[in-house]
Simulated scan of single mutants.
Amino acid sequence: MSVHPLLKVDISELSVAERIQLAEDLWDSILDKPEELPLTEAQKQELDRRLENYHRNPTNGSSWEDVKKRLGFSQ
């Protein structure tokens, strides 16, 4: 892999844990400005549908912790 032009680092030289942390940090930085990530009308409707489903059936589904455990990301 080559040096990333914005980060000025060779990402392939980072450990897997460091790359995961980098991805998390990058995602968190996007979430700092949600207004810059507009949703389409279809996306808004889908989110509203899912939220309504959750309100009707709050015990359905899995917690984020359970999902991470099933995927093997539990620490």
Rank of each mutant, 00 (worst) to 15 (best):
D32Q: 12
W64Q: 07
V67E: 06
Q21W: 02
I30H: 10
S62K: 15
D10A: 12
L31E: 14
V9E: 15
E65D: 14
K8A: 12
K68D: 04
L7K: 11
D66P: 00
V16P: 00
Q21E: 14
W64I: 11
A23I: 05
P34G: 05
E52N: 09
P34W: 03
A42K: 13
Q21H: 06
L71T: 00
L14Y: 11
R50V: 03
Q21G: 10
S29D: 14
I30Y: 12
E18G: 04
L47R: 14
H55D: 09
M1C: 10
L7T: 01
N57S: 09
L22P: 00
S12L: 09
F73Q: 06
L31I: 01
A23F: 12
L39Q: 07
R70K: 14
L71R: 09
I30V: 05
R19T: 02
D66A: 14
P38G: 02
E41W: 01
E41H: 03
A42Y: 06
E35N: 07
R70W: 06
R19W: 07
D48V: 03
H4V: 02
I11K: 10
A17Q: 13
E46Q: 13
G61C: 10
I11P: 01
K44M: 12
P34H: 04
Q45N: 13
V67S: 10
L6V: 03
V9Y: 04
L31Y: 08
T59E: 15
L31Q: 15
E46S: 08
L6Q: 08
L14T: 01
T59A: 11
D32E: 15
N60H: 11
V3C: 13
L26W: 08
G72Q: 05
F73H: 09
P5R: 02
W64Y: 12
P5G: 02
Y54S: 04
I11V: 15
I30F: 12
V16S: 14
S62Q: 15
D25N: 13
E36T: 00
N60M: 08
A42F: 06
A23V: 07
L14N: 00
I20Q: 15
E65S: 10
I11Y: 03
K33A: 07
S62M: 15
I30G: 01
E65V: 05
R56E: 13
S2C: 01
A17E: 15
Q75A: 07
P58Y: 11
L37E: 08
P34Q: 05
K8C: 08
H4S: 08
R49Q: 11
E41L: 10
E13D: 09
T59N: 13
I11R: 08
I30C: 05
S29E: 11
K44W: 05
W27M: 07
L6G: 13
T59G: 09
S2G: 05
S29P: 00
R56D: 12
N60S: 12
L14S: 01
K68S: 06
I30T: 01
Q45H: 06
N53M: 07
P34R: 04
R50Y: 12
L39Y: 05
W64E: 06
Y54V: 00
D28P: 00
K8D: 13
H55S: 07
